[in-house]
Design a protein around this nucleic acid. Sequence first.
DNA 1: TTGCTTTGTTCTATTTTTGGAACATAAGGT
DNA 2: ACCTTATGTTCCAAAAATAGAACAAAGCAA
Lengths: 313, 313
Amino acid sequence: MKVDLNDYYYFVHVVEKKGYTAAARSLNMPKSRLSRHVSQLEERLGIRLLQRTSRSITVTEEGKRFFQHARKLIDTMELAEASISDYATTLSGKVTFSCSTGMAQFSLINIISDFAELHPNVIIEQRISNNTDDLISEGIDFALRGHGKELPNSSLIRRPITQIDWPFFCSPDYLKKVSQIEKPQDLAQCRFLKLGRANAKETVSLLNSEGLRIQQQTNIAMFTEDMGTLKQSAMKGLGVTTLPEYVCSNALQTGQLVRILPDWISQSANLSMLMPSRLGIPQHTRALMDFILDRLPAETIIKPHSNNSSSTY
Amino acid sequence: MKVDLNDYYYFVHVVEKKGYTAAARSLNMPKSRLSRHVSQLEERLGIRLLQRTSRSITVTEEGKRFFQHARKLIDTMELAEASISDYATTLSGKVTFSCSTGMAQFSLINIISDFAELHPNVIIEQRISNNTDDLISEGIDFALRGHGKELPNSSLIRRPITQIDWPFFCSPDYLKKVSQIEKPQDLAQCRFLKLGRANAKETVSLLNSEGLRIQQQTNIAMFTEDMGTLKQSAMKGLGVTTLPEYVCSNALQTGQLVRILPDWISQSANLSMLMPSRLGIPQHTRALMDFILDRLPAETIIKPHSNNSSSTY
DNA sequence: TTGCTTTGTTCTATTTTTGGAACATAAGGT
DNA sequence: ACCTTATGTTCCAAAAATAGAACAAAGCAA
């Protein structure tokens, strides 16, 4: 059968909008076309990308793998189109933003470098910080922050981006060593690798799909503020950890990490863009903000743990 | 107008095959379709991608810029398709190859990392060397080499990949400083930055589109075996240099370097893949070789100096 | 359970795209 | 200068894709 590159476009939109109807609306086209194209793509590849009920869709494992490539393809297209329009070269100025080390390492790399390629006259200053209070000082134009429920500092405008689950991971070797981890109680016999600074209580928090939250006793073997170190340590079989899914997705695929306790996550964080004001933002700053808002959901959309219900947005 | 991603596919093929007829043959489709799709793409983007005579095509400057993105898009597609077929995960083993520092830095990076992503069980050993005689020793499976006319060591099988021109470059600042560089004789008053080791004669070789070769006296200010250093030095305005076009294409776009003496190049090198034998090559080694052969021409195809006529292949 | 709403799929008249041949133009050989 | 050959473009009957409505299935509320 013949390859049709437009199928990639349709598939990406259906996944990102989480359904044919929503995708059709946003693309301004009949959903029958989307349906036919995705079916055709599946038939050509010989695999199922979406699992359909007559009421909703879920992305299969193969579908998630394919989506990551397909989204990259769409990114490339958008870069190509933008590089043609003179819009690209006209923007100039300096923009400063702040994000966590984890975001910088695992989800912003390609986004920022693509933007820099597209707008060679815009100078980007990226500050790495986990503090939530230094935003407006220091001349930061906007910040990206993950946070549990609500942010304390409400003088800032908050624009929600996406929700990110933190599943539990360990290496296949470690899983073999501790025989089995099936219930939260099994964590008691594990070494736990925890993000953040050392604190008194040696417990880990768990949340299941019904919204039930429990605390489980464990032995914390390591504290670090760097997600990369945590991931690396888990891959070496030093113990169990919990991290944003997008940080570990590549290690999951290569089999260096496995997800344990699939019904549980440690938290579901909200990722937001914070800014001092919605008004008076220079064009080049807004361009970077829009670029990030457009791209970031795709980098974090791979969420095997479908979370409980509707947040406010 | 509506975006059609297949237009990218068609455009890339027309550029790479250097014509509608050849592209149509290789894609097994009527050339009328290619013609119509490329026209449609141009109309939608509002720019001319190809300059046509009724006998041949040349890629415009905008076309070259667009091509680089478009080719990346096709690469992504091929990765996506390959990641689905189980072919990807079945290959395993170790493959060792050799290339120059310049190739590694400027044209192989993405190709090798893409291959590694696609075949996680294949271990790649990349040796950096500019010597041409250490190939079969040391357990090297194949090598990539640029060379002037013919290679001396004929015990190796040679597979030509592409031809690479070496234009002359300097920074805009430096060009302003030395007033004007219009004829080869103007190089006499320039500082020249030369690749390779120091040798006695301070001359530079030039070749024009009619095949005329001349030697020009100059002042050599620097010798280095590293292309990156040479490029960096030229960008800082230390003088004039000559390098493969693909090494400098990004600096040309950002305006950090400009091409001088547009009718002249210093040489036109042949890039070849060398191997001890064509038989008995393991599957995973052949896979990497094919992958490189498929991708490399696109990385080096951007040749503003259209060279004289037909080589043997 | 029943009725209502929302979702994905299927159907078909209409619109769009396509293939293959005819065409126009320019390079290369004699 | 002439003829041959090869290239990109245009034309139109035939094939394919599409829009919009009808359809079937499943969640939701009473």
